[in-house]
Amino acid sequence: MAAGGDHGSPDSYRSPLASRYASPEMCFVFSDRYKFRTWRQLWLWLAEAEQTLGLPITDEQIQEMKSNLENIDFKMAAEEEKRLRHDVMAHVHTFGHCCPKAAGIIHLGATSCYVGDNTDLIILRNALDLLLPKLARVISRLADFAKERASLPTLGFTHFQPAQLTTVGKRCCLWIQDLCMDLQNLKRVRDDLRFRGVKGTTGTQASFLQLFEGDDHKVEQLDKMVTEKAGFKRAFIITGQTYTRKVDIEVLSVLASLGASVHKICTDIRLLANLKEMEEPFEKQQIGSSAMPYKRNPMRSERCCSLARHLMTLVMDPLQTASVQWFERTLDDSANRRICLAEAFLTADTILNTLQNISEGLVVYPKVIERRIRQELPFMATENIIMAMVKAGGSRQDCHEKIRVLSQQAASVVKQEGGDNDLIERIQVDAYFSPIHSQLDHLLDPSSFTGRASQQVQRFLEEEVYPLLKPYESVMKVKAELCL
């Protein structure tokens, strides 16, 4: 049975990233139509530049190519590739079939990587351009969430054990800070992308030097003109047959890092959902379990974690691919890159769409948070109580021993009897502590235990987050809708 299948058929496997999760716009960027249309555009740009620099290419040939950029006979191309065992030459023939007058000058002087690699770089750039505003929107939604809850005390956790208090907004800023680093890295790697350009079979530009009869300047002009037509500021000066596969490492490393950030955020949300302090959106008709109707599973956060793990592992592909590119190139890269580049971007696209949807509907339960604080705060307040007693004339050592005994009794009630923490009640009825009984409410005010959390939130948002989001103001209103 021949390899390949009808990918629109229910009898043929289709990647869930495309069929179930990723956005239509990201799927289109990695589609065959987008790819092969870009090949034709690159052939047109090459012909236009070659004509401008004096090669015998007519206006009629150029116009014929322009008129057929979208006229792609995919069936013919597939048949040609089956016959020739070469995808680029299959599309040269297919393009030439609908451009008979231009057929002889299509791909003039070029090698397969002229269309293959340059198209990949265009796709990487455009895919990054799709991700950047999506990530900015996630940051914006979380920034709104953090600002609104900047002063809401909550129990902090280290080692997932109760620690000092923080605020809900401050905790959210930990998430935002990681995503801001990801946004900066995505922008950097996007701006650092260079075009492969017009380089020939081993990167020496020998074929173009021959076409222009040894004119170095025209060869350099050709490279520059096509690079500018493709919208790049610069091209690699040095290439082998391909652009260095280190570029793929750079791009997928940034995406993998984004995956790590999203995994951490969504894990926190899942843990908070278990504590009943916070939940992701839950639709009115949504079913959490087929057997347990009360369940409210954090399905979206779980999906993000599941896909983020996949995204983090994909960076190993370009690392290994770059390491086995012998001399000017081997074909070890080809099949692998067809999979890992598309999957990385479709996965990143999915987790950003999902995280935006989550961040637009996060639900906080202040009463649950308050109750958990009441359970733990008495123990945390013991040092403040000791200091207040010393100020009232008591002995630190005597007070410490009193607190120690009462704390152990209260802990026994919590752990052995399943009761509430009654340390404060014990202190309130103990005559030894009568000098500070009137101060206990103040000493137990949760806001006095959150330090500068709310001020940190305000400063972080104003100095770091809002300036970073400013270039994306025009796209901030787009909502994230999930079908599944």
Rank of each mutant, 00 (worst) to 15 (best):
M76P: 07
S289E: 02
E279G: 06
P293K: 01
E401T: 10
A206L: 09
Q205A: 15
G200D: 00
T166I: 07
S434R: 11
V189F: 14
E464S: 07
A348L: 08
K246F: 02
A230T: 05
Y114V: 04
G169T: 03
I106G: 01
L222Y: 04
L131P: 03
V247W: 09
R404H: 06
T58S: 13
P435A: 10
I369G: 08
S407T: 07
I403P: 01
R141W: 13
I403Q: 05
A143R: 05
S359A: 08
L135W: 02
E79I: 09
L46T: 01
T330M: 02
L142K: 07
K101R: 12
I287H: 06
K170D: 00
A103P: 08
V189M: 14
A150W: 05
L469Q: 04
Y13W: 14
I238S: 05
A47V: 07
H97F: 12
I249M: 07
N71D: 13
A431L: 09
L174W: 11
Y13T: 13
N71V: 11
F433K: 03
Q408R: 11
C305N: 07
R300H: 14
A47G: 10
S438K: 14
C27K: 07
A18N: 13
R37K: 12
D6I: 14
P467A: 10
L255C: 14
Y432I: 06
S454G: 12
A256P: 03
N274G: 04
L362Y: 06
D216F: 06
V138P: 04
L108Q: 03
Q325T: 08
M292F: 03
S454W: 09
I122A: 02
A308R: 01
R303Y: 02
F36W: 15
Q184G: 11
A453L: 02
E328G: 05
D32K: 10
R329H: 06
H400Y: 04
K477L: 14
Q221T: 10
E481D: 14
A90L: 00
R194I: 05
Q325M: 12
T347A: 15
P133G: 14
I351G: 02
W39V: 10
Q397G: 11
N68H: 09
V475P: 15
C399I: 11
E464I: 15
Q416H: 13
R404T: 06
V405R: 14
I351W: 01
N336D: 07
I237P: 06
T158L: 03
Q409I: 05
F145I: 04
S474H: 14
Y34V: 06
L135M: 15
E283W: 03
I427R: 04
A411H: 02
G197P: 02
G5Y: 13
R83G: 14
S12F: 12
G200S: 13
G203T: 03
E60I: 08
Q210V: 11
G451E: 04
F208R: 02
D191Y: 12
A260Q: 08
V315N: 06
G104E: 06
G419P: 02
R270Y: 03
D144T: 14
R85P: 00
S253P: 03
L440D: 04
L42F: 01
F236D: 05
S207N: 03
H437N: 07
S454R: 12
N353H: 05
G54L: 08
M89R: 00
L165S: 04
D182T: 01
M89G: 05
Q164A: 13
L255F: 11
C99W: 01
T154Y: 04
F160T: 02
G200M: 01
P366C: 02
S31R: 06
H7S: 12
H400I: 05
D215A: 13
S207K: 01
D120G: 06
L124F: 06
E401S: 11
C173Y: 01
P366V: 05
T227H: 13
L222K: 04
R303L: 02
P100R: 12
E50F: 06
R296S: 07
T58D: 09
E64A: 13
F460R: 03
E343F: 00
L423A: 04
I106W: 00
K479A: 15
Q205F: 00
L42H: 04
P153F: 05
L222S: 00
G361E: 15
E279T: 06
V115K: 02
N353D: 10
M387T: 12
C98M: 09
A235P: 14
T154H: 06
S395V: 03
M26E: 01
A235E: 12
V226W: 02
L355Q: 07
H91Q: 15
Y21I: 00
T202Y: 00
L46I: 06
A136W: 05
A206H: 10
T227A: 14
T242Q: 07
Q221N: 12
M389K: 06
A18K: 11
K295C: 00
Q161V: 03
I123C: 09
I176D: 05
V315Q: 08
H217Y: 15
L121Y: 03
C483R: 14
Y34C: 09
Q320D: 01
T154P: 00
H7N: 13
E464D: 15
L423K: 03
E302G: 01
R188S: 09
I385Y: 07
E148S: 13
A102Q: 05
A49Q: 03
K229A: 07
L319A: 00
E250Y: 12
N336S: 12
L355E: 01
F30Q: 09
A291V: 02
D87K: 00
P293I: 03
I339W: 01
A230L: 03
I386H: 07
L69E: 07
M76I: 12
D398C: 11
F433L: 06
P10K: 15
S412T: 12
